[in-house]
Write a protein that binds this DNA or RNA. Structure first.
Lengths: 335, 335
DNA sequence: TTGTACGCGTTATCAG
DNA sequence: CTGATAACGCGTACAA
C-alpha cells in the first residue's frame, strides 16, 4: 500500500522526473516511455501524493466553494452545477459553508483557511462585508462570484432587474396596485447585492405604472421558507389591503402561501402571489414565478474559474436570462 | 505575502519547532512563549501551509464527503449537518458528488482520488458496488456510511423498517388494501440498502394485515420528484385499482401528487398518498409523511468520524427514529 | 522547556 | 528526450 514515485521509477527503469512528466502528460517524453510508465504505475496502483505535489508546484487542483447554505434552492443548484464542472476538469472542491442567521449575522470569512489550500475561490450568493472582499482579493487568487459580488469582480448572475420588471409588470397587468414585497434581507446593505437590484427595479416598474413605492409594503425574509412565513405574516398585519405579493424567492413565496391559507385567504381570488427561481415544486403548488437556471450558473462560474487558472482573459459579467412562468397563484385583482 | 514558519520563529526569537508546538496547542510550551508566538504569528499574518503540514504529518485535516447529489432532500440536509460539524472541529470538507443517472448507473468511485487526500470518508446514501466498498476499506481510513452501508461498517441511518411499518399501518388502518409503492431503485441490488429494508418491512406489514404483496404494485423512482412522476404514472397505468400510494421519499410523493392531479384523481377522497422524510413543504402541500431528521444524521456521522480519528472506539450502528406525520393526503379508503 | 536536523513525496531546473 | 538534484514548508524524533 502506497507506492511512491521512485518505486514506479525503479520498476520502469527511468528517473522520477520522467515518471512525473509521463504521468502528467507533459511533452518531451517518448511515447514508448510514457506507455511503459503508465503501465507500471497502474500495476503498482500508484497515486501521487497531493500534498507533495502541491508543496512542490504551488498548485492544489482544488477550488474553494463558499456558500451560505446547501438547503436553499439557489445554492444547492449552483453547488451541483459547479461541482460537476470542476470535478470533470480534475479539480477538487473544498466546501466552506457559513451558518447565516436570519439576521444575516455570521462569523467573518477567514481567508487564512483558504491560503495555499485552493487555486481559486467561487463565492455563492454571500452578501460580503467590504473587508471580507478585500481579504479575498488579497489572496490574489482567481475569484468568481455567483449571484452576488460587485461589478469590479468577475461574476455570474441572473438578470435581477429583468426579474423584478417581469414580476411587477405581470401583477400590474392583472390590475394589482397594492403589492406587498418580500425582500431577501434587511441587513444586506451592500451596494451591489441582487437583493438591492431587485428592489430597485421593482420600485422603478411600480413608478412606471404610476404606483407609489410605499415602504410599509416591504418585508424581509432570508430566502427561506420559514423567513417567507414570517415576512408574509408581518406584511398582512401591517397592510391587510394588499392584493398581491411579490417574493424574491419561490421558497419565501411558499411560506407566504402557507400563511395565506392559514388565514383563509384564497389564492388568487383574493390575493395573488409570485416568486422567483423556478422551483421544481412550483407546478404542484401552482406558484407563478420568474425562473432562472441556477445549475447553469454554477457551471458557468466553474468554467470561468478554470479559464482564469489558465491565464485566459475572461469576461467579467455573465448575465443569465429569466423567464416569466405564470401559474395558478396569480390572477386578476379582486373586485 | 506568505510568511513562513521560520519568519515567525525568527521574529519571536524561538525555533521553528517551538512555533509549531505553540501554534498547535501542544503541551510542553511555556505559556509566556506561546503567547509571544501567537502574537507574532498573527502580526505576520502567518498561516501554515496545509500541503507542507500534511506531507510532514501524514494527516490532512480533511474529510471526504461522497454523495450522489445535493438536490435531493436527504443528501442536502445531511451535507449541511456534516459540513457544519466538521468545520467547527477545524476540518475541511472535500466534496465528491456522483452523477447518478435515473438507472443508477454512474462511474465507479475512484478511491485513488481520495488516497492521501483525506483523513476519513463519509459516504451518503450511495448504493455502492461490492468492489467499491472493498476499495474504500482498502484505503484503511475511518469510514462512515450515512443512510446506507452494510452492517459490517459504521453507519448512521434512520429506522427504515419502522418507517415502512408506520406508513403501511397508517394506510391499512384507513382501510386501504390495494397499495401502490414507489421504491427508490430497481437497479439497487445491494443486500443492505435502505431501499431494501423499507421494501421488506412494507411487505411484512402488508402480510401481517393479510394483504398479498403483489409485484405489480411496485414501481421505481430514484428519490426524485421527476422519478416519482414517472413511477406514479406507470403504477396507475398498471393498477388503476389502487387506493393509496406509499412513496419512499416525499419528493417522489410530490411527483405522484402531480400525476394524480393531472389525471383528475382527488386526494385523499379517491386515492391517498404518503411519503417519507418530513420535507419542509409537506405542510403546504398537505402531504402525509414519515419524518426523519437528516441534518442530525449528518452531524452524527461527522461526529463519529471525528471520534474514530482520535482512535476512540465507536458504536457501529446509530439508528435514528422516525415519526408519522399524518396530513391531508391520507384518508379513508373510498367507497 | 526548547533547539537541531532530518524526512515527507513531489515538481522543476538545469545539465546532459 | 532523459537524469540528477535542489527546493517546497512544515512536523517530529532526538538531543540539549
Amino acid at each position: 500500500m502506497g507506492a511512491g514515485i521512485d518505486d514506479v521509477a525503479r520498476a520502469a527503469g527511468v528517473s522520477t522526473a520522467t515518471v512525473s512528466r509521463a504521468l502528467r502528460g507533459l511533452p518531451n517524453v517518448r511515447e514508448e516511455t510514457r506507455t511503459k510508465v503508465l503501465r507500471v504505475a497502474s500495476q503498482l496502483n500508484y497515486a501521487p501524493s497531493p500534498s507533495a505535489a502541491s508543496l512542490a508546484s504551488g498548485r492544489t487542483r482544488t477550488i474553494g466553494l463558499l456558500t451560505p447554505s446547501f438547503s436553499r434552492w439557489f445554492h444547492r443548484n449552483v453547488v451541483e452545477g459547479a461541482e460537476r464542472t470542476l470535478r470533470s476538469a480534475g479539480f477538487d472542491v473544498l466546501l466552506h459553508a457559513f451558518d447565516v442567521g436570519s439576521d444575516m449575522t455570521r462569523r467573518m470569512i477567514d481567508t487564512g483557511l483558504l491560503r495555499r489550500r485552493v487555486d481559486g475561490v467561487l463565492v455563492l450568493g454571500l452578501p460580503l462585508a467590504a473587508t471580507e472582499i478585500m481579504d479575498l482579493d488579497r489572496l490574489d487568487l482567481p475569484l468568481v462570484f455567483i449571484g452576488a459580488g460587485s461589478p469590479q469582480h468577475v461574476r455570474v448572475h441572473m438578470d435581477d432587474r429583468a426579474c423584478s420588471t417581469l414580476a411587477v409588470e405581470h401583477l400590474v397587468a392583472l390590475g394589482h396596485r397594492t403589492i406587498g414585497q418580500i425582500h431577501a434581507s434587511a441587513a444586506d446593505t451592500s451596494r451591489w447585492s441582487p437583493a438591492r437590484e431587485r428592489a430597485d427595479a421593482a420600485a422603478e416598474s411600480l413608478a412606471a405604472a404610476g404606483i407609489e413605492n410605499d415602504p410599509s409594503l416591504v418585508e424581509y425574509g432570508d430566502f427561506t421558507h420559514e423567513g417567507g412565513r414570517g415576512a408574509a405574516a408581518r406584511l398582512l398585519d401591517a397592510r391587510p389591503d394588499i392584493t398581491a405579493v411579490y417574493a424574491h424567492s419561490d421558497e419565501m413565496a411558499f411560506g407566504a402561501l402557507e400563511v395565506l391559507r392559514d388565514r383563509g385567504l384564497r389564492v388568487p381570488e383574493e390575493i395573488s402571489v409570485i416568486g422567483v427561481d423556478g422551483h421544481e415544486l412550483n407546478e404542484l403548488v401552482g406558484l407563478s414565478s420568474v425562473a432562472q437556471d441556477a445549475q447553469a450558473q454554477g457551471e458557468a462560474g466553474a468554467t470561468l474559474i478554470l479559464e482564469m487558472l489558465t491565464g485566459a482573459p475572461v469576461g467579467s459579467d455573465v448575465l443569465f436570462p429569466v423567464s416569466l412562468e405564470p401559474r395558478r397563484s396569480t390572477g386578476p385583482v379582486p373586485g
